[in-house]
Write a protein that binds this DNA or RNA. Structure first.
Lengths: 233, 233
DNA sequence: CACTTGGGATGACAAGTGTTCGCTGACTTC
DNA sequence: GAAGTCAGCGAACACTTGTCATCCCAAGTG
């Protein structure tokens, strides 16, 4: 069904992935395989809403995905490998969020409002991904933890770049810009996590969500005030 | 079969603690029991350095503690109950840290320095506890998660009280003091977590530790600048 | 068209799990 | 010192788990 697309797409790609090497066959076959892979990842993501990666069983995942236990090995060597795949996916969507937060225009106040809105929207739309990241950021699976930490560092660099270009940051040392970026990223993560368990704790969801948004905005405003008075201190 | 005992035991006591009610016997007996309880908790804490609570097995714990599987039930109903006990312990030590951070004297600069030092020292001395909190804060075991969240809220209140008493906060609305307190607590947690995996990633531990301390200090200073200029904005 | 390829299903394996049971022997109380 | 209490033990239970050799059959190939 996607045959032409996939062959076109994959034929001349120097494929490094051991499993899921799919470059030499083509057509319905790998479309199905990719579909099974997606089914496994979705099943995993669904199960991970109520537990964490290291307590997940592969039988559990295959059962949820409607597949036999052995089928798992055709796609992933490990559950850790599935975890890393999920990290990549989750971080891609998070990256998109950060970009759109950075791209905001207007005065400081409007940018803050839009940023917090973007975060809230992202948590609403990608709840499973965000929860997964929050859980596994300090979780028990080392490669997953490292992947998340590395990507968050890259985000901080990106934010630092954007902040450095703003007129408010004139005269700042690179280290100071960097620490400001880290502060923003940490705050973003904290806020996202707060939105997360505001939605899942039941009782008056939208009210506590508004409360979190208000707090986050005020905090960002405070940091902003610190920024404009940073050099005269 | 234990009918008579239990009815006698429970009938006229407004007893809230089912297990580990130890008030009526005395001497060597309960000292031994408490010792076993400690052994279980220590074993759990040791095992939790490389995995999270929901993937922990009780057989695993009892084995590590040098005890038979059935012995576990004399102390905890669940692994979740063990988890909650560990939360209480961990939060007690964290509470002590926060108090001593709040009690700092001197000008703002000196207080920031000492605060960051206190955090670093606490992570060094209670690594297992801190890691446990970081892991289970967003982990898969609901009661544990809630216990941590509730206590962190209480900490924020305490910090808010202390901040409100400072002369810098004159004219602030209670909500703003509160959001500032939350910002501080979040920052404290983030910093502690950063110290944590600075120590465990190997390569030049004390250098990256210093880097984190420097960043944290600068961030606190920035927030402080925001504080003093908050009202004129 | 026959023929190869390779996802997926099946069934079995050992090893591990949570939980319950009755028992023992050291402590406590009368 | 006899009777009562109960923390911890070892065995047994009914599972679930990861892994593998094996077979099946639709998709791809010449």
């Amino acid at each position: 069904m996607f045959a032409d697309f996939f062959t076109l797409r994959w034929r001349n790609s120097a494929n490094s992935c051991l499993l899921n090497d799919v470059s030499h066959i083509s057509g319905v076959r790998q479309a199905q395989k990719q579909q099974s892979r997606r089914a496994l990842m979705d099943a995993g993501l669904r199960l991970l809403e109520h537990q964490n990666l290291s307590s997940l069983g592969m039988r559990e995942v295959t059962r949820e995905a409607g597949m036999s236990p052995a089928g798992f090995y055709r796609h992933f060597r490990d559950l850790a490998e599935l975890g890393v795949a999920l990290v990549e996916e989750s971080l891609a969507s998070l990256h998109a969020m950060i970009r759109s937060a950075l791209a905001e225009q207007g005065d400081a106040e409007a940018r803050i409002d839009r940023t917090v809105e973007v975060i809230a929207g992202h948590v609403r739309d990608h709840r499973a991904h965000v929860r997964f990241l929050a859980r596994e950021r300090h979780g028990g699976v080392q490669p997953v933890r490292e992947a998340i930490a590395a990507e968050l560092r890259r985000f901080a660099e990106e934010v630092a770049g954007a902040l450095g270009a703003q007129p408010v940051s004139e005269g700042w040392s690179p280290e100071d810009v960097r620490m400001l970026a880290e502060l923003y990223v940490d705050h973003m993560v904290s806020t996202a996590a707060a939105f997360l368990d505001a939605g899942s704790e039941g009782s008056d969801e939208s009210e506590s969500e508004r409360r979190i948004a208000r707090t986050a905005r005020t905090q960002l405003r405070l940091i902003g005030v610190g920024r404009v008075h940073w050099l005269d201190s």
